[in-house]
């Protein structure tokens, strides 16, 4: 069978589908001072998966606000800098108008994913951390 670390080199998704892969990738991103990018990506996935049951609205609103505050509000933050202004205003609008939708972070997640695929993921595959691991 293919060892997991070879699978990680196939695609970003194979890497993010494996606990050890995520752990190593996060260690690399932390070195580069951009672990927030990965945390944001998972926060978006987690938000989409939130229970849609009644009575959960308050929790979802609180969570949407927390994601907005931590990653998007500060325009100098590593995540905020890599999301399009239109996408950021859309999210801001949703939060301000209390219009909480499971897909409200989808576009931002797509943009951040593209940055990872073009930038940090290829760098990770060439990094000492990954090469030493393999």
């Amino acid at each position: 069978p293919t060892p997991p670390y070879l699978k990680w080199a196939e695609s970003l998704h194979s890497l993010l589908d494996d606990q050890d892969g995520i752990h190593l990738f996060r260690t690399f991103l932390k070195q580069e001072d951009c672990a927030d990018v990965l945390d944001f990506w998972f926060a978006c996935s987690g938000f989409r998966k939130q229970d849609t049951g009644e009575g959960n609205e308050e929790k979802k609103l609180k969570l949407a606000k927390a994601i907005y505050k931590k990653y998007i509000l500060d325009s100098n933050g590593i995540v905020s800098r890599q999301i399009k202004p239109a996408t950021k205003s859309f999210i801001k609008d949703c939060v301000m108008k209390l219009h909480i939708d499971p897909a409200m972070f989808d576009q931002a997640q797509t943009e951040i994913q593209a940055v990872m695929e073009e930038n940090t993921y290829p760098l990770f595959l060439k990094s000492d951390i990954y090469l030493e691991y393999t």
Partner: peptide, 20 residues
Amino acid sequence: IDSEDDLLQECISSAMPKKK
């Protein structure tokens, strides 16, 4: 009451793959 950080951490963990 969950603090915002706890809520965020819980959300991030919920999206991670489970141990195979």
